[in-house]
């Protein structure tokens, strides 16, 4: 493998290269503005991000800007650092004793690598959906209400409202509305994963990280979740890791290709899949890659 010392700017998305993109970070964050003009505002940016597990250098000079209210897919062979990247965005890597990172990783101008960062607040703004559905051994209602209850004291009515809204957004309401009090472990795998998504959006995050959310699901459930992502895209900035090329092509606006801890290429999904600039990307997408 050749050693790419240089970082990869997004070539196919001109608006991402706007030199004044920093102005968007200075702007006060307003969760409600959804006008089309803010299409490629990027408030989540990484610049020369390096990450290590002990001596193992897991991420090399990652530079990427994640557009707001768009779906960004991360693809790449196993072990290339996609999860590591996601886990730095919501600092789940704090749980790994030897994990450390250097470089710049910012969300709305906040340095996410700051040791003193309030990770509780960060994780409230950056939700995460895991590869394996991990519903809590509680009722469906309590699962969704878990997050809101952590952050403030709601009345029962308010909670009912939040739970219903989240479940509707996650396209699960109709299936579970009659058994909100039943254990969430009784749901099917696909329902459990949608429950986890509902649980994540109940807190009201800005960014949603999904680490292979469909890898444990059948095609039908996968389809539901993809529809759901297309729906959620209007409201949340979504980062999704997937091993399924078709899925990346179907759901994402932007695609980034990771390989051996490097971000080889990032660009509009259409470009990446039809006309990749780099040979590794083409090999990987066409299935010729290890």
């Amino acid at each position: 493998m050749q050693n790419n010392k240089h970082t990869h700017r997004v070539a196919a998305a001109p608006s991402l290269q706007q030199p004044d993109h920093r102005s968007s970070e200075v702007r006060p964050a307003s969760g409600e503005s959804s006008d089309e003009s803010s299409e490629f505002h990027c408030t989540l940016t990484a610049e020369n991000l390096n990450a290590w597990y002990g001596d193992f250098h897991a991420l090399h000079d990652i530079t990427i800007e994640i557009p707001n209210r768009r779906v960004t897919a991360l693809i790449g062979p196993s072990g290339c650092g996609k999860s590591t990247f996601l886990r730095w965005i919501n600092r789940m890597n704090d749980l790994v004793p030897k994990a450390r990172a250097a470089g710049r990783l910012e969300l709305r101008g906040t340095d996410l690598l700051d040791r003193l960062l309030d990770v509780v607040d960060l994780r409230r703004r950056v939700g995460m959906v895991f590869q394996k559905p991990n519903p809590f051994p509680k009722s469906v209602f309590d699962n969704v209400a878990f997050g809101p209850r952590l952050h403030s004291r709601y009345s029962r009515n308010q909670l009912d409202e939040i739970v219903e809204r989240s479940l509707r957004q996650a396209a699960l309401w109709d299936e579970v509305k009659d058994r909100l009090g039943k254990s969430a472990l009784q749901l099917s795998g696909g329902q459990q994963q949608r429950l986890c998504i509902a649980r994540a959006i109940a807190v009201g995050p800005d960014v949603l990280l999904m680490d292979e959310p469909c890898s444990a699901l059948d095609p039908k459930s996968t389809r539901r979740i993809e529809e759901l992502i297309a729906e959620l895209r209007k409201q949340y900035t979504i980062l999704i890791v997937t091993h399924n090329m078709q899925q990346a092509a179907r759901v994402s606006d932007l695609t980034g290709f990771f390989c051996e801890g490097r971000l080889v290429e990032v660009g509009l999904t259409g470009h990446i899949f039809t006309n990749p600039t780099r040979k590794e990307t083409e090999d990987y997408i066409s299935g010729r890659f290890g």
Binding site: N90, M92, L95, V120, D121, L122, R123, R124, G127, M128, F130, K132, N134, F136, P137, F146, G147, L150, H151, C196, R199, A200, V203
Partner: peptide
């Protein structure tokens, strides 16, 4: 399972909230 712990932490629970509630 540590997936429960991670799920709770990822929702913005503090360590104590995770212990106490999960």
């Amino acid at each position: 399972p540590s997936s429960l712990r991670q799920g709770s932490l990822a929702l913005g629970a503090t360590r104590w909230q995770t212990i106490y509630r999960m």
